[in-house]
Design a protein around this nucleic acid. Structure first.
Length: 619
RNA sequence: GGUCCCUUCGUCUAUCGGUUAGGACACGAGAUUUUCAAUCUUGGAAGACGGGUUCGAUUCCCGUAGGGACCGCCA
């Protein structure tokens, strides 16, 4: 085998401190450090890397020559991974640069990609020519490393057709974080244009969910419906400018054609004859819709902070309806008008809106408005990789609260779905805000992993102070609805619960588990022992319990330490293992075989209650 | 059917074209232990496939396969 020898002229590492290691026999395979130890830092002095070229099975690209060639270029102050990178200017237009760089998504200080294009800022205009220019405009707000010229305004725009689900929560989080990070604003708009599907309850659920997560928006939530007149105004401006037209084709006719095309697996686009027809020939008594006159040829480019440059052929778009026949607006128009009027600079939303971004870009251009920066984040799938459905994961955010997750944990978990910051996993809010940037967003969809969420939650449970944790618990106690535990605690119960919290923390992944762990505190005599507990209390156990009752009655200080010491000395004196004595005690005190430390429990319960429970089982 | 997007351990992800492909969750083993946890030590686990460019490709390009999104007088 061709291992690196001391006289291997090509080895760049020979000059280093580890040169001695190169003499002597070839290192056996077993010297290779275990996988998890293979770090850049320990690689340098050792140089026992295996050179595969010696015996013919050189793996592609991992050859020794290559390996040696590269060592020169390793920057050793790149300790850790990804943190202390050298910031070098990127070359976005270099064809050999990585995709991230070319697409302007490099972490390093890249020139930004234009967002709004070189179009006039006011007044309607004709459609864009064939190619959307993308060079120039290096001062757009796309760059996240330097402060944008315009103050950042983001928004979250849910439709109130249902609850706030996990994907929506993450979208809101990203928008909120970016606004916080840049010192900008985060606005909330309810997309309630469709009155038929609008429910006030859903609006409340969304607002409550955001508040619970701590994603406070700036100003009042805006109702899209309330702005219908403005939307119509813009539609008519488009009409006046020749960028839209009245279409008299009946809806039913279109629906029938669409259904037919779908059945035949044919591609269907609306090609309204009214696009070019003289409006004077319009039929009487038919209420027309207003259609946007979409460009027929050329392409529409979406410069996306997440997706990169996405090019759509204009021929693939049809003329979308912007105003219904009853004069009410339709989504794509309403969104553009509202985002423009609200001064939104950055639109971060799910990729399911990517094609809408192209359509909306066309409308922005037709109106001569600046196109905001788009960032279309990938979707979150269910644990099985399928689209989220009610069966798995598509729960309202309030369901997560009721399951006992902490908002900090949920935010921390969600921010890691599609976003990363090196190897970091735990992000206290301040760090999240400091580190969050649009450039580190990924493009591939992720899966909901409840186990990781649980682990993150467990982390935040352990981190919380006892008082904070209990306060959080009391807030959700009614929702938790755990039998045997009161929805409201008395002062005594609260004090006992608080005292037990340190023993509960390491045992719980959710607040629900914290509460169930404290169940023994709330039991009422006579206790109903479960099967395993019952089995622990045999004749011999009764003898021990009886004996210990007597000792406890005479015990001086009533503390966990004193109790434990006493039980230990009792066990030792009788030649028993501690478990032999402690388990029956646990059964008698908690009615279960599993619980937090039984000595803590007895200490918190007090002498009287402890003795009463023991005497119940003493027989 | 059309358009667009995606693909690194089971999962979330790291990687400036040169790393022994790293971390976290999950899983296995051991230690500790009054139960259960927590904790500590430790193990296994990945570049979808095929071409091309290059001294060198997980990384850039093309194709294939698989997955996803969107194609409403819904949002």
């Amino acid at each position: 085998m061709g291992f690196c020898r001391g006289n291997d002229a090509g080895c760049a590492l020979r000059a280093g401190a580890g040169a001695d290691d190169h003499d002597g026999p070839a290192l056996p395979q077993s010297v290779r450090p275990p996988r998890h130890r293979r770090r850049r830092t320990d690689r340098v002095p050792l140089c026992f890397h295996q050179h595969r070229h010696g015996d013919g099975h050189r793996a592609r690209g991992r050859g020794a020559a290559a390996a040696h060639f590269l060592r020169w270029h390793v920057d050793d102050d790149d300790h850790g991974r990804g943190r202390h990178r050298h910031v070098r200017p990127c070359q976005p237009h270099d064809a050999r640069a990585p995709r991230r760089v070319r697409q302007g998504r490099c972490r390093q200080s890249c020139p930004a990609v234009p967002s709004s294009g070189p179009y006039p800022a006011t007044g309607p205009m004709l459609h864009a020519p064939n190619r959307t220019p993308t060079q120039k405009a290096s001062s757009s707000p796309m760059s996240t490393t330097s402060k944008p010229a315009k103050p950042v305004i983001t928004r979250f725009a849910p439709s109130p057709t249902g609850f706030l689900h996990i994907g929506g929560a993450r979208t809101a989080l990203f928008n909120w974080l970016y606004a916080q990070h840049t010192g900008g604003k985060f606005l909330l708009r309810i997309e309630d244009t469709d009155r038929a599907r609008h429910t006030p309850d859903a609006v409340d659920a969304i607002l409550d969910g955001l508040k619970w997560l701590g994603l406070q928006w700036d100003g009042e939530p805006i109702s899209q419906f309330s702005r219908a007149a403005r939307h119509a105004e813009v539609a008519h401006a488009l009409l006046a400018a020749g960028q839209a037209y009245r279409c008299y084709v009946p809806a039913e006719e279109l629906a029938a054609e669409r259904a037919k095309a779908e059945a035949e697996k044919r591609f269907f686009t609306v090609a309204s004859p009214w696009r070019d027809r003289d409006p004077a020939t319009a039929p009487a008594g038919v209420a027309p819709v207003i259609r946007f006159k979409a460009p027929r040829d050329g392409e529409t480019v979406v410069e996306d902070v997440v997706q990169g440059r996405v090019v759509f052929q204009n021929k693939d778009f049809d003329d979308l309806v912007i105003l219904r026949s009853d004069g009410t607006p339709i989504y794509n128009l309403a969104v553009v008008v509202d985002d423009h009027d609200m001064g939104v600079t950055h639109i971060i939303r799910g990729v399911d809106h990517l094609t809408n971004a192209a359509r909306q870009t066309q409308i922005y251009r037709a109106m001569g408005w600046d196109v905001p920066v788009f960032g279309h984040v990938p979707l979150i799938h269910g644990p099985d990789g399928q689209k989220l459905s009610k069966r798995h994961g598509a729960l309202g955010i309030e369901a997560y609260r009721a399951m006992g997750y902490l908002p900090a944990a949920l935010n921390n978990y969600l921010v890691r779905l599609g976003w990363s910051h090196g190897d970091d996993e735990i992000f206290p809010l301040a760090k999240m805000i400091e580190w969050f940037d649009l450039n580190s967003l990924g493009k591939s969809a992720s899966r909901m992993d409840f186990l990781k969420l649980a682990d993150t939650n467990a982390h935040y449970i352990r981190e919380a102070t006892d008082a904070t944790l209990l306060a959080n618990i009391e807030r959700v106690l009614p929702e938790l609805g755990i039998s045997g535990v009161p929805a409201n605690l008395t002062a005594t119960q609260r004090a006992q619960f608080l005292a037990l919290i340190p023993d509960l923390k390491p045992r719980a992944k959710t607040l629900r588990e914290v509460v169930t762990g404290a169940a023994a505190l709330f039991l009422e005599r006579p206790l109903q022992l479960d099967v395993k507990a019952l089995a622990l209390i045999d004749a011999e156990a009764r003898v021990h319990i009886k004996a210990l009752s007597g000792r406890f009655r005479a015990l001086g200080a009533w503390s966990a330490k004193a109790l434990e010491d006493d039980v230990r000395s009792y066990a030792e004196a009788g030649g028993h293992k501690l478990g032999k004595i402690a388990q029956p005690l646990r059964a008698a005190i908690t009615a279960a075989s599993v619980s937090p430390p039984v000595f803590s429990l007895m200490a918190i319960l007090g002498r009287e209650e402890t003795l009463a429970r023991l005497e119940e089982q003493a027989g």
